[in-house]
């Protein structure tokens, strides 16, 4: 005991300002309309990268502000980062497997 900080045990939670939440939601709504807008433009081969780029920005906003990772401790950020890293690894290894296969037609 005796290692209490000067604030005691109360008011240690970071309170995200109301305005930040409204701005985050506003940005998410705008980006959702942008997703559909770009979809209507029929960008062809660029359609998928654009849609997922916007989705990634939206995901980052949700993680940073709504889920509070921007204000969270290092441990929780590392936990998220680890999960995300292994997701990328899963995709990369599967992609390497699928796209390096040499298709052979059976002679039987």
């Amino acid at each position: 005991m005796g290692n209490h900080n000067s604030h005691g045990t109360t008011h240690t939670h970071h309170i995200v300002p109301f305005k930040i939440y409204m701005m985050t939601a506003g940005a998410l709504f705008i980006l959702t309309f942008a997703t559909v807008g770009f979809h209507q433009m029929h960008l062809g081969s660029l359609a998928a990268p654009v849609a997922f780029l916007i989705a990634s920005v939206k995901a980052a906003l949700v993680l940073l502000y709504f889920m509070g990772l921007k204000y969270d401790n290092l441990m929780n950020r590392v936990i998220f980062g680890t999960a995300f890293f292994f997701l990328l690894l899963l995709f990369a290894i599967c992609a390497l497997d699928i796209w390096t296969r040499i298709s052979e037609i059976s002679t039987l």
Binding site: T35, V36, H39, A47, A48, A51, F52, I54, A55, K58, A59, V62
Partner: peptide
């Protein structure tokens, strides 16, 4: 859902 929407419905 942010990823499911473009994946399933748009792309």
């Amino acid at each position: 859902w942010i990823f499911l929407f473009p994946l399933l419905y748009l792309v």
